[in-house]
Design a protein around this nucleic acid. Sequence first.
DNA 1: ATGAAAGCGCTAACAT
DNA 2: ATGTTAGCGCTTTCAT
Lengths: 337, 337
Amino acid sequence: MPTVLDVAKRAGVAPITVSRVINNSGYISQSTRERVEAAVKELGYVPNTLARGLRSKRTKTLALVVTDITNPYFTLMARGVEDVAGDANYSVVYCNTDESEAKEEKYANLLAQRQVDGVLLVPACGNVKTIKFLLSNDINVMALDRRVSEVEIDSVRSDSEDGAYRLVKLLIGLGHKRIAVITGSKDVSTSVDRVAGYRRALTEAGLIENELVYYGEFNQQSGYEFTQQAMLHSPKPTALFGVNNFIAIGIIKALHDLKMDVPGDVSVVGFDDLPESMLLAPFLTVAAQPAYEMGRMATELLLKRISGELSDGYQKLVLPTEIIERGSTGPNRNNSD
Amino acid sequence: MPTVLDVAKRAGVAPITVSRVINNSGYISQSTRERVEAAVKELGYVPNTLARGLRSKRTKTLALVVTDITNPYFTLMARGVEDVAGDANYSVVYCNTDESEAKEEKYANLLAQRQVDGVLLVPACGNVKTIKFLLSNDINVMALDRRVSEVEIDSVRSDSEDGAYRLVKLLIGLGHKRIAVITGSKDVSTSVDRVAGYRRALTEAGLIENELVYYGEFNQQSGYEFTQQAMLHSPKPTALFGVNNFIAIGIIKALHDLKMDVPGDVSVVGFDDLPESMLLAPFLTVAAQPAYEMGRMATELLLKRISGELSDGYQKLVLPTEIIERGSTGPNRNNSD
DNA sequence: ATGAAAGCGCTAACAT
DNA sequence: ATGTTAGCGCTTTCAT
């Protein structure tokens, strides 16, 4: 592989001049610029980012740490991140933590070694250890999707409390009085906030004594199992709120296997939504989050933070969710209430 | 940030000894190892991958270049890649080309600068320029999902020709005689191979004169538009084959808007499939590809290639697809045939 | 079993 | 507008 030195010799200049041409920094006369550019082409020279990063302390690399890229919500976010990053000639490394603190730590360590310029992090749990570790290694951190306390950092998320509140209010408006929520881990802010929104709606309607919360995991199986459990509760809930899309799908499958009709017997609402392009027949009533936009905005902010354009104060963006009413919700037909 | 030198001083050894401890190379006495490890801990030392890579010519970074990470088929593949890479302490950079040759070239250049150890590439087109460029920069390349000619490299893909053949045979077995295929770009091997499989099935059944092929793009809109076109064809096809999942969804939507029943009026088959966890009610008959497994295998192979364990000959893995018959296909009810 | 010296390829800092 | 020098943090190579 040719180096700056090879190019410099060929163009009859000093290495630093080559560097200046490539990086468009400093003053270069038109003629030397042309000679250098010609030499670059002739030799097929490609600058070495490692050497560059070692010297300049900038790697032009971001990391996206999500719990599972397979969740279409995160996939779409990832696409938003990469689109903005790519335009700025940044690369994006992605990592899956599966909500595991251990994996999160492992990746944080890896990313510190890699000297990434910034990390877009969907924290695996309420623990701020990872964030502090990254910050102590001079890495900019952007919290995505989830709230963090104890540390001051930029963050972009959607309004979970409000989305949940409006979903549950919609159910209450349809006459539902016994609404159960099936959620993920207790120490994740999305869980906490959505349950809080649920509670606020119930309280407002004087239904808080009917509160029924199941804490599990953010996956289909957990949604499936807790639906079975919820349906053993007496009296049965007439509506279920699945706190993310995987849980909601688990709920629908469980109800199907229990031979219960949606929305005839039970109404179902969810969070996140699936991109339209993946759905044959959108069915689930949801609070949809602007995942792609969140990825974009978060990355734009992070790049600004990295370049020092954002020196004062921390940005905390909370985007609204959109309630999309579809076939999975209907009026409460249970006469006993 | 502490460096090897800081650690070395603290442990009372030379920098190289620290390096040996960290990399588990060479002979180290138990006592110095312990002293070094203690110093590492006390200082919170994190090795700098850039410096390491600059010297050792290994970055422990892979790149995954797909056309669109948002396609669940590629998402799942990405997850397979990252799982294997992460276990080996490799990082994965992802890039979206949107089937654009220009973007593919741009990313190839970026990745060469980054000195990645290997690239898992879903080629945007039949052009081998990118691959040659990467190889000429000493980067190992693994072709994913698509066939490449002209260059000898490792590849992992699924059997498109066979999957298409079996799907179309299934339709023929159901009495369909006018089967149209809606596919993507002509210069992508998956397009070519799936159309070839379609043709083989038709030819075998003596139906090749009914051949009806629409070349478009691999997205929902293209599937939608060409379905409208296909339905203007006289006589109308009684079955449609969408060559990937986005196209198939576009087909279903178009038929819905045309008030045609699936499978009553038209049967539909697709490729790729969506992960079960995303589907409320799986409906589409498909040739499913083992996307996650493909990602895993490709990465395992690539890592072996990088470490030199695979020196002789090139691996060309072709995995079978699985035909999953669901509600979108039924017997041909058109009496005119 | 450990160390000294050198250099990977680049750019910051300081000339001129 | 261009060049010189030095050094980023690590590991290869060659000693001892």
